[in-house]
């Protein structure tokens, strides 16, 4: 059966890997090729590159970054951030990405998902969603522009609509949990996995090995993503995988 995937996320700004705490306050942690190779060595199942400043600034470097990484590291690569057109997707896929993640631009124009899926296949198109719980309306609300701006979209409904439009996978970040190290947002992923039948990547909140066990034990997500805990060596992928294996979770 398919292994549950452990995915480090590299935030990239002008060709350098950075990690924002709650999407702000950036700290340089290095060269994307070296970091990607180190994660491959550790047993990461996939890498996600997020061009973090892309939505607000002109971007160029990410295509070169992916080209360089894909020449040295032979594992699935997903790239997101600032993808606004099928041409943007094509450039990244041609550079060596296996999947592209769309976020704000897909909210603005859901036809982008369909156009990408028709041209490259649904398995190439990841819909990234930034989610925040709204206690007034008692629902998860979609945020765009790197989590800076609320929309009136309901996360669960948007997930369904995105899949219907052609998204082959969802990468859902809980803004409530991101940066807190208090564990993944279990109710969010329970609701999402009940609503759609495509693979879901859980993101935001992991601080310890047990958080991975919990998210795979209590929800049907296919993958879990983390950044700072891996980047700063607080957790290692072999540790996470050994613990998951002991808990009966299928890992590679």
């Amino acid at each position: 059966m398919l292994a549950k995937r452990i995915i480090p996320c590299l935030d990239v700004d002008h060709g350098r890997v950075k990690k924002g705490v709650n999407f702000v306050n950036l700290t340089d942690v290095g060269d994307p090729v070296e970091i990607a190779a180190a994660y491959e060595q550790q047993g990461a199942d996939e890498l996600v590159f997020l061009d973090i400043t892309a939505t607000n600034e002109k971007r160029r470097a990410i295509v070169d970054t992916i080209e360089q990484v894909a020449s040295q590291v032979f594992m699935p690569l997903t790239v997101g951030g600032g993808i606004h057109s099928v041409d943007d997707m094509q450039r990244l896929l041609k550079a060596g990405a296996d999947k592209v993640a769309v976020n704000s631009a897909a909210v603005q124009d859901p036809k982008l998902i369909t156009a990408g899926a028709e041209k490259f296949g649904a398995q190439c198109i990841v819909l990234a969603i930034d989610s925040k719980w709204d206690s007034a309306s008692q629902r998860y609300v979609v945020y765009v522009n790197g989590g800076r701006q609320a929309t009136d979209l309901d996360v669960i409904q948007w997930a369904k609509d995105g899949v219907a439009a052609g998204a082959g996978e969802l990468l859902v970040t809980s803004m409530d949990k991101d940066g807190t190290k208090s564990g993944f947002d279990i109710p969010l992923y329970q609701a999402l996995t009940a609503a759609v039948n495509v693979p879901i990547i859980a993101s935001g909140g992991c601080g310890k090995v047990a958080d991975f066990t919990t998210v795979f034990d209590q929800t049907d997500v296919d993958a879990a993503l983390a950044a700072s805990v891996f980047h700063f060596g607080e957790l290692t992928i072999p540790d996470v995988k050994q613990t998951l294996k002991k808990a009966g979770v299928t890992v590679r």
């Binding site: 059966m1 398919l2 292994a3 995937r5 199942d45 649904a122 398995q123 082959g168 996978e169 039948n197 495509v198 693979p199 296919d222 590679r252």
Partner: peptide, 11 residues
């Protein structure tokens, strides 16, 4: 009871 496409790492 499995998702299609078959996407990911398999043994």
């Amino acid at each position: 009871g499995v998702k299609v496409p078959h996407m990911g790492w398999n043994q």
